[in-house]
Write a protein that binds this DNA or RNA. Structure first.
Length: 486
RNA sequence: GCGGCAGUAGCUCAGUUGGCAGAGCAUUAGCUUCCCAAGCUAAGGGUCGAGGGUUCGAACCCCUUUUGCCGCUCCA
């Protein structure tokens, strides 16, 4: 574990040193749990996002992509349950410094009453709590705690602070709307942008169930504790696809996407041994089945993607609050020859954290290698074995020396390649040093132009993963790289 | 959010009793023309995380704050 922790620190340092990820607004000392992607990180992230987008919207003819706004009507979050479930009144015990969720604290006490056989008192307590919670009556709740002499399990005292509200949604003001609705939220998940557009997309795209709507974008959560680098950030990017199905068929599709999404992660070069499913025992308010795909990060197996069977919860809720029908008319025929008719579709959701995926790819790619050279001295390198299809740079073009017209030939290939893929040109320092630098940022291929190139039009191609090299025709460089990155 | 520890050049760190802010690597320029880093010469780079206090004088002592790490707590 100590090694793994060191390894994780090394990876964070490497990300900063090679232009992948920087702490946000670092010159002002940074901002807690906010990070910026640098020149290489942004390209990697974009490549992963594009790869996902293509997989979803191009390789599945029944999935289309949208891009909904971050700001949404405040009722959206009432409907989704975030207003009620995403904020928790908390209370601290001044002696033990322990913090409790008020509802958990009272419920624990109620359970104790039940165990003592005081069923009626338990019931009365819970009923009072629910009434006070629904009114956000924090003083009343504190009184309830004090009246019942509820104590902290650690300090066994009832020396409590006032109750404070911790809302996990960021709010801001929308100027031109009056009254209560001038507070709007930064979306805590991208899914709702898809649900509220369900009918728009279904009607204008003439989509037939089953079909999916995909979206990537930023979401925001005011986490109490956000740590572990870009694993849990306050501002993060999701890649979500909501798949609308006929009620009763949701488990079929849930299992389909569960398998499909695991395969997709493996296609990113993540070995099966570092991926696993984790079934949710305790389900969220909207789900009837939920599983996480977890990746073995340097700090243990953690969620990368969630696959949830969300039932018709979201569409039903939006239908209720918006008073607009969000139903689908199914023209498929039943046994009696008549159309199936109207229903609210069920939804199977796949939701990946893009930042987490970037971290997974980087930590899976990172290796600090040491070996002995032929003369017995030790040699080493740090290499990012990022799969070629998502690597920030695909090819480095290196003239062996910066004279004898070698740079001119190299620049000629650069110009030929740069319209098709991201290529890097460098003529400074020894060739070995340049190879090391390309290893460190994860460039999968290097071609070196040398004196022999002028004689027979061949160049050396050097592979990042194996460090092997071979000679290929100068004229074939672009074609060969194109083949390897597709 | 609470408690503990930490923050000096891009990185890793040194800095004696409170007395001129340093090294190695990295970077840039030049030399070398090398097919897997660590050759030579030179240069640039710092309000010592930030703000305040004590002092003739603070990287060093005190207070506040911020960021990170660890532990709690939280993560529909």
């Amino acid at each position: 574990m100590a090694n793994e922790q060191n390894n994780f620190s090394e990876i964070i340092a490497h990300c900063k040193e090679y232009g992948y990820i920087f702490p946000s607004s670092e010159i002002y000392d940074g901002l807690s749990a906010v990070y910026d992607y640098g020149q290489n990180g942004a390209q990697l992230k974009k490549n992963i996002r594009d790869y996902w987008w293509k997989n979803m919207t191009q390789l599945h003819e029944n999935i289309v992509g949208i891009d909904a706004a971050i700001f949404m009507h405040p009722l959206t979050w009432k409907a989704s349950g975030h207003v009620d479930n995403f904020s928790d009144p908390m209370i601290d015990n001044k002696d033990s410094k322990k913090r409790y969720r008020v509802d958990h604290l009272i419920e624990t006490h109620a359970e104790k009453l039940a165990l003592e056989g005081k069923k009626e008192e338990e019931y009365a307590l819970l009923k009072k709590m629910d009434a006070l919670l629904s009114k956000d009556d924090f003083d009343g709740l504190k009184n309830l705690i004090e009246e019942n002499k509820i104590t902290c399990a650690i300090s066994e005292t009832s020396n409590w602070t006032d109750i404070r509200q911790f809302n996990l949604m960021f709010d801001t003001k929308l100027g031109s709307v009056s009254g209560e609705e001038d507070t709007i939220y930064l979306r805590p998940e991208t899914a709702q942008g898809i649900f509220v557009n369900f009918l728009n997309v279904q009607k204008t795209g003439r989509m037939k169930i089953p079909f999916g709507i995909a979206q990537t974008g930023k979401a925001f959560r005011n986490e109490i504790v956000a740590r572990q680098f870009i694993f849990r950030m306050r501002e993060f990017e999701q890649m979500e696809m909501q798949f609308f199905v006929k009620p009763g068929t949701e488990m079929e599709w849930y299992n389909f996407w569960k398998a499909e999404r695991l395969k997709w992660h493996e296609s990113l070069g993540i070995p099966a041994s570092k991926l696993r499913y984790h079934d949710h025992v305790k389900l969220a308010h909207y789900a009837n089945a939920a599983v996480d795909i977890e990746f073995e990060f340097p700090f243990g197996f953690k969620e990368l993607e969630g696959i949830h069977s969300r039932t018709d919860f979201d569409l039903k809720q939006h239908q209720q609050l918006s008073k607009k029908k969000l139903q689908y008319f199914d023209n498929d025929l039943k046994e009696d020859g008549k159309p199936i008719g109207n229903y609210i579709p069920y939804v199977v959701e796949t939701s990946v954290g893009l930042d987490r995926l970037c971290l997974a790819v980087i930590s899976n790619s990172y290796a600090n290698e040491k070996w002995n050279k032929e003369d017995g001295t030790e040699d080493s390198r740090v290499v990012l074995r990022i799969p070629a299809k998502i690597a920030p740079y695909k090819l480095a073009i290196l003239p062996l020396v910066k004279k004898d017209a070698l740079p001119e030939i190299a620049k000629h290939i650069l110009n030929e390649c740069k319209e098709s893929f991201h290529a890097f040109y460098e003529e400074k320092d020894s060739i070995g040093k340049r190879y090391r630098r390309m290893d460190a940022i994860g460039t999968p291929f290097c071609v070196t132009i040398d004196h022999q190139t002028k004689e027979d039009n061949t160049v050396t191609i050097r592979y990042r993963d194996t460090m092997l090299q071979e000679r290929i025709l100068l004229a074939d460089v672009k074609k060969i790289i194109m083949e390897k990155i597709n």
